[in-house]
Amino acid sequence: MSKGKGPLSKLYNVIINSVDVIVPQSMRPFWESPAGPKTVFFWGPLGKWLLVGTGLADVLQRPAQDISLNQSGTLAANGLIWSRYSLGIIPKNYGLHAVNKAVFITQAFLIIKNLS
């Protein structure tokens, strides 16, 4: 639950409270966990998977000369830094760790593809 008082916090709380009543008992431990869907620890990594999808689309469709080395290098470094951070915070966020490793691997592949 958000403790904010703004309109987006209120909307978020309405959505969470509405879904809360229909979550099955078997899913309760996941729903209530410190890194579950009620927290940013869940939604941040989920959104970051879009970067992995975009990188994979570049691998499959974009010619090597059209790949930005600066962008790929920055995203690869970002993946490495946040992979380390995700294991240093409490609660440990293995979802964030996995997505950042995937970002690093995808972007490193794009850099290698560009340099070949």
Rank of each mutant, 00 (worst) to 15 (best):
M1G: 08
S2I: 03
S2C: 11
S2R: 04
K5N: 15
G6L: 03
P7K: 09
L8I: 08
L8G: 08
L8Q: 08
S9G: 11
S9R: 10
S9P: 11
K10E: 12
L11G: 06
L11V: 00
Y12E: 12
Y12R: 10
Y12V: 02
V14N: 08
N17Q: 15
N17C: 12
V19N: 05
V19A: 06
V19Y: 09
V19F: 13
V19R: 02
D20H: 01
V21F: 06
V21K: 05
I22M: 04
I22H: 02
P24R: 00
Q25C: 05
S26F: 13
S26M: 04
R28T: 05
R28N: 03
F30C: 02
F30D: 02
W31Y: 05
E32W: 02
S33M: 14
P34S: 05
P34E: 04
P34H: 10
P34L: 06
A35I: 13
G36N: 15
P37N: 14
K38W: 05
T39H: 11
T39W: 12
V40I: 12
F41E: 10
F41P: 01
F42R: 14
F42H: 14
P45S: 12
P45A: 10
L46A: 10
L46N: 14
G47N: 05
G47V: 11
K48Q: 12
K48A: 03
K48C: 04
W49N: 04
W49G: 03
T54A: 08
T54D: 10
G55R: 00
L56K: 02
V59Y: 09
V59T: 13
Q61Y: 14
Q61L: 15
Q61S: 14
Q61R: 09
R62Y: 04
R62E: 08
P63K: 07
P63R: 06
I67F: 11
I67N: 01
S68N: 10
S68G: 07
L69I: 07
N70V: 04
N70G: 07
S72K: 13
S72H: 06
G73I: 04
T74L: 15
T74K: 08
T74D: 03
A76G: 06
A77E: 06
N78I: 10
G79N: 12
G79D: 12
L80Q: 06
L80W: 03
L80F: 04
I81L: 09
S86T: 02
L87P: 02
G88M: 11
G88F: 01
I90A: 10
I90F: 03
I90R: 09
I90S: 03
P91L: 00
K92W: 02
N93G: 05
N93W: 01
N93T: 00
N93M: 01
L96E: 08
H97W: 08
H97K: 11
H97T: 08
A98F: 04
N100C: 00
N100Q: 14
K101Y: 02
A102I: 02
F104N: 00
I105Y: 04
T106W: 10
Q107K: 15
Q107D: 06
Q107M: 12
Q107Y: 10
A108V: 12
F109L: 09
I111Y: 13
I111L: 10
I111P: 01
N114P: 05
L115V: 12
L115N: 15
L115W: 08
S116Y: 10
S116K: 14
